[in-house]
Structure formats: C-alpha cells, structure tokens
C-alpha cells in the first residue's frame, strides 16, 4: 500500500505540490490526470525521490519516509527508491548497453544477483514485453515504442512493489502507443500496483481503478473512471476533460 500524507514540494518560491493526501491499495491502478504544470509529474517523481518533497510523508509497503527539509542520507534514499520502478517519458535507456544489458544492470549491479540468473530473468521480462528477438539490439536500433517497452522491462527488473509511469506514451508516434499500453494493461491484470501519469484517457477509462485529477498542486477530485469521466463534480475537472478530449463524455466503446 502507498500512503501519501500532506505532501508539499516547492522549487524556490514556487509551490508545486500544496498538500497532497492519497492512498493507493495494493494491486490497484491509479491514473493521475491534470493540465501541464499541475504538479502531477512532480508528485510521481516524489514517490521515488527523484524530487525530495519539502514536507509531508510517504509510506510504501510499510517503509515510511518523513520529509522536513533536512537532508536524507543517500543510503536511505536508495533503499526507499528501490521499492518503485520508474518508466520515463523519454525512456532514458542506457544508450551504451543492449536491451538485455539495460534490463540486467539493476539486478546485477544493485541487487548483486549472479549474471547468469539475471540474464535468464531479463530475457523473460523482454519476452513478456514482446521483444524476445531484440535482446541484443542497442537502443538506437529500436523504435520509440520498443525502447519504452525495454524501459518497462528494466523497471520491472528490480522487482518493485509499485510501478510508476511518467507520461510513458507522450513521446511516441501514435501508431506505437498501442503496444506500450498493451504491456501496461497486462501488468495491471497481473495485479501490479501502478501509478500512471498520462493523457491517454482511453487507457485511464479501461484500466484505472481510480482517477485522480490534480490542478495547481492540489487534488481537485478523485473517483472511479465512471465518476470522473461521466459525472465530474468540479468545474475545473469538467473544463480539463473538455479541453483534452472534446468527446471524452461520450461513450466510445
């Protein structure tokens, strides 16, 4: 379970998160939506401490982190971070390593798993994301969609409790989005706990257990996809949904 309590984050004078409270149950898929600059990516990055929150607390799987502006020892950050796997908007694959080496890097270097064992598991993961025939390719030889799927396999490689997705399909050509979303759906069906920042409303509708709408660093409202998409309670939510997808109130199925 993830529990976020009164989380604040400021960059200098700019307060990006203004007290976020959120609970995510194990095995659930949470989709965070909101206008750009609303703080949704910052919230996600706070969950694995790529940004250190200014104040508040985060608890993941019984590991509690309190933030009070003091510096946190690197060891503590590293161990807390390994509870989550992060998938980046721009994939951020290691360009000097093959797909297989990208996935093996974490298990071998961080967890000290023997190479042979790590390799077997990495091959399994790459197989799962549909890239069994690309394991020896370097990132530049892969399409954006394939790179992102390696990114997902790499994040899964460290066996995280929670998977975090930061706009995983935003940088992709439209025809490549489907494969990545399919991999994410499969993960959700296997019961992976996921926090996803995305603009893919269709994915949100189909896969999310809960939608969280964030604006100006605050949670405006949250609810099931049905509640948010068909009966948004707040004017801000309604306006956002109309802007991002004029048809989002119609049923597309």
């Amino acid at each position: 379970m993830i529990s976020i309590k009164n989380l604040h984050k400021s960059f200098g004078d700019l307060e990006v998160l203004k007290g976020i409270d959120l609970e995510v149950e194990l095995g659930k898929v949470i989709v965070i939506i909101g206008p750009s600059g609303s703080g949704k990516t910052t919230l996600l990055r706070c969950l694995n401490l790529l940004e250190i929150p200014s104040s508040g607390a985060i608890e993941i799987d019984d590991h509690l982190m309190n933030f009070n502006g003091k510096e946190i020892p690197q060891k503590k950050i590293v161990s807390f971070r390994s509870l989550t796997g992060m998938v980046f908007q721009n994939y951020n694959l290691f360009p000097h390593k093959t797909a297989l080496e990208n996935v093996m890097e974490g298990p071998v270097i961080v967890k000290g798993i023997p190479k042979k064992q790590a390799k077997e598991k990495a091959i399994q993961l790459l197989n799962k994301v549909g890239l069994a025939d690309k394991i020896d390719d370097y990132p530049f030889q892969l399409s954006g969609g394939q790179q992102q799927r390696v990114g997902i396999a790499r994040a899964m490689g460290i066996e995280p409790k929670v998977m975090l997705f930061d706009e995983p399909t935003s940088a992709l050509d439209p025809e490549l989005v489907g494969d990545v979303l399919q991999v994410m759906k499969d993960l959700a069906e296997e019961g992976m706990t996921m926090v996803v920042v995305t603009h893919e409303m269709r994915f949100a509708k189909e896969v999310a257990d809960e939608i969280v709408f964030i604006d100006h660093g605050e949670i405006v409202e949250k609810g099931t996809p049905n509640e948010i998409f068909t009966h948004p309670q707040h004017e801000r939510t309604r306006r956002f949904l109309e802007q991002i997808h004029p048809l989002s109130n119609n049923n597309e199925h």
Binding site: M86, N90, E105, I109
Partner: peptide, 22 residues
C-alpha cells in the same frame, strides 16, 4: 543528459555506481 542519472537512480544505483556504470 540528466535523464541518464535519473535512470541510474531509478534502478536503485547510488551516485557512484551511476557515475561509473552509466
């Protein structure tokens, strides 16, 4: 790019490991 550091951190590496390996 900064994303390379972050990718290293995101798979659990510390600063030294990320510098050395990535």
């Amino acid at each position: 790019p900064k994303g390379q550091w972050e990718a290293g951190y995101s798979i659990g590496m510390n600063r030294t490991q990320t510098l050395k390996r990535i």
